[in-house]
């Protein structure tokens, strides 16, 4: 079995590339602190979301100083909140999203950002983002969810701290 010297060299370079790719992603996870959506969100009964303490009244909840929880229900073909009422959070805050689905699989994408997750019935996708200055963002469903999938959209408004009049969700 003859393996040409150049080929051995390329094998080494290819392995180096692969290790480099894994190292970059590991840096992103550890150094830049980017966590993946995992199983921390737990499960819910998709048939009984109305009885859920938070998904029963989805929206923005204050969880600490400059910290907010946003509960979002994705359903054919709207986000609650997001579609009829925008998701409103103050600038320069830490926002944790909890996203689930009331029916089929949906996607939840804050357009032009890295905030992006699947919404799977029975599962809660939880992820935290840092929002900076005031800006409006679009939200869309990026997984096919039925015949009006293309109409499933919403907005998120990051408002200046002094104009923010408190979270809308809960009582």
């Amino acid at each position: 079995m003859e393996i040409h010297a150049y080929e051995k060299f390329w094998l080494a370079a290819a392995l180096l590339l692969i290790v480099g790719l894994i190292a970059t992603v590991s840096y992103g996870a550890v150094g830049a602190g980017i966590e993946m959506i995992g199983d921390e969100g737990g499960t819910v009964d998709p048939e009984a979301l109305d009885d859920h303490p938070k998904f029963g009244d989805p929206g923005v909840y204050e969880s600490g100083e400059d910290e907010y929880d946003v509960y979002v229900v994705a359903e054919q073909f709207a986000f609650r909140p997001g579609t009829s009422d925008p998701i409103e959070v103050p600038a320069n805050s830490t926002v944790t999203f909890h996203v689930t689905s009331a029916d089929v699989i949906h996607g939840f994408e804050v357009v032009g950002t890295n905030a992006n997750t699947m919404a799977i019935p029975g599962q809660v996708a939880t992820f935290t983002v840092e929002v900076d200055g005031p800006r409006d963002y679009g939200i869309l469903c990026n997984e096919y969810c039925g015949s009006a999938h293309h109409a499933m959209e919403g907005t998120m408004e990051v408002v200046p701290e002094d104009e923010y009049d408190g979270p809308e969700g809960g009582d």
């Binding site: 966590e35 830490t94 840092e130 929002v131």
Partner: peptide
């Protein structure tokens, strides 16, 4: 990727 406005930190 890392240069984007809103990024996931947790």
């Amino acid at each position: 990727f890392l240069g984007r406005g809103i990024t996931v930190v947790g």
